[in-house]
Design a protein around this nucleic acid. Structure first.
Lengths: 230, 230
DNA sequence: GAGGCGAAAATCGTATACAATCTGGGAATA
DNA sequence: TATTCCCAGATTGTATACGATTTTCGCCTC
């Protein structure tokens, strides 16, 4: 469920989702060049489709397209990083509040499974997948809140957060994530809307505070190895 | 300043802006078919560019692309209408608050000119242009708030509001707009952040309450006459 | 060895050709 | 007359060709 905006173009959408998932799982790093021919070869489509996918990703701000130079995985600035988390705090306090009042037992069960899966992935050392799942947890809450418009924004912000984390996350303590998520789940389950709201705020503030917002240094790896091709 | 997301594609961007402005000014109505060849002929570009522009607009949710059927100006549902205004209330209370604390005298002067222009357009019977300008007022406030991320969302929501108004606005009393804007301006000028916040909220609630949220009936007109071609 | 120059290679931007799909209307049938 | 079927025309989906621009890299000069 690596949600990207609506593309009629089914094949383009597939390529966009493939690239987006790779970004979420940190197999593609910020700044990496996305060569049109190369991407086309990997997904078995022509450049027409690739361009459509890259345009989609650029609208989601996961990719930056430089005229006549090509597409690159975005490298959010420090400023952008703060803004994204501020916007998330604004939107997700709302989704958390609303989700707490609306969550059904099925919703809660789903979220529980989600957290478990996140835990397994983390314990199995699949940090990329764990990271993506932890983002999906937030997206799931937005979905439960039943506000498609806000949910779409949250999806985009979560996706961008993944890039921000790739760039600025230096300490290694990913466990705190799932503790916060667990607390949030409890509040949702008990329909304690105000508590959910506050837990969400502090969770996001926490995340931001754990970032090392100084100039990043980065050496983009190769595109092909992100998709395990020779 | 009919802002649309970043397309590297300069020509595609121009077409997207042209179409978006036409939508904002209600020259293109919800549901209207946007034939690729026809749009291409109007703007003097090939279908490649048109498709890129349509994709851009579909990401902004101004256009809906139905696979193998083509692109249509979006027809937001009643549900969507409420959601858009709710999201606007959430985001724009923030931008209003922030803008009130940050607005410089130049910002205020700019906003004043904006309101004046809106008035002139309205008095001159150019309701389309007046409508677009009144949306731009909100976008300008978001810009002053100096939060690019939130501002981008507001831009998108304002654009969608224009479609919602086209579909659901039936009573004719567009003057209230500029009164509310004037009051808002005063609060911004006096740096009364909380007051600006509340004025913005009530302004948006007002707007929503003036809509006739019942099933719309609409007969899309022709594409060419929107651009005054024979 | 550093720096500048220029041609070749790589890559992107756009138009266009052709295939796939949809649409509308008329003929055949009940 | 109403309904179904089918085909021609229109329209979108995708690949590819070609021009424009950028990048690379060998070569020359200092």
């Amino acid at each position: 469920m690596t949600g990207i905006g609506i593309t009629s173009n089914q094949r383009g959408r597939n390529v966009a989702e493939g690239l987006a998932t790779a970004i979420h799982e940190h197999r593609l790093s910020p700044g990496m060049k996305l060569n049109e021919d190369e991407v086309g070869e990997i997904f078995g489509v022509s450049r027409t489709i690739v361009r459509s996918a890259l345009q989609t990703l650029s609208h989601a701000q996961l990719v930056v397209i430089e005229p006549n130079r090509g597409a690159f995985v975005a490298r959010p600035s420090i400023r952008e990083a703060r803004e994204v988390f501020e916007a998330r705090a604004l939107l997700e306090t709302r989704t958390a509040h609303s989700a707490a009042t609306r969550a059904t037992t099925e919703d809660i069960a789903l979220l529980k499974r989600h957290i478990d899966e996140e835990h397994w992935a983390f314990d199995a050392g699949e940090t990329g997948r764990a990271l993506r799942l932890s983002g999906d947890f937030h997206i799931e809450i937005a979905r439960i809140a039943n506000q498609a418009t806000i949910a779409a924004f949250v999806r985009q912000l979560v996706a961008r957060s993944s890039l921000i984390i790739a760039l600025y996350w230096r300490r290694r303590q990913a466990t705190c994530e799932s503790h916060a998520h667990h607390a949030l789940l409890k509040a949702l389950e008990a329909h304690e809307a105000d508590r959910a709201k506050e837990l969400m705020t502090s969770h996001l503030v926490d995340l931001l505070s754990l970032l090392d917002l100084t100039e990043p240094t980065d050496a983009p790896a190769s595109l092909k190895e992100a998709f395990r091709l020779p």
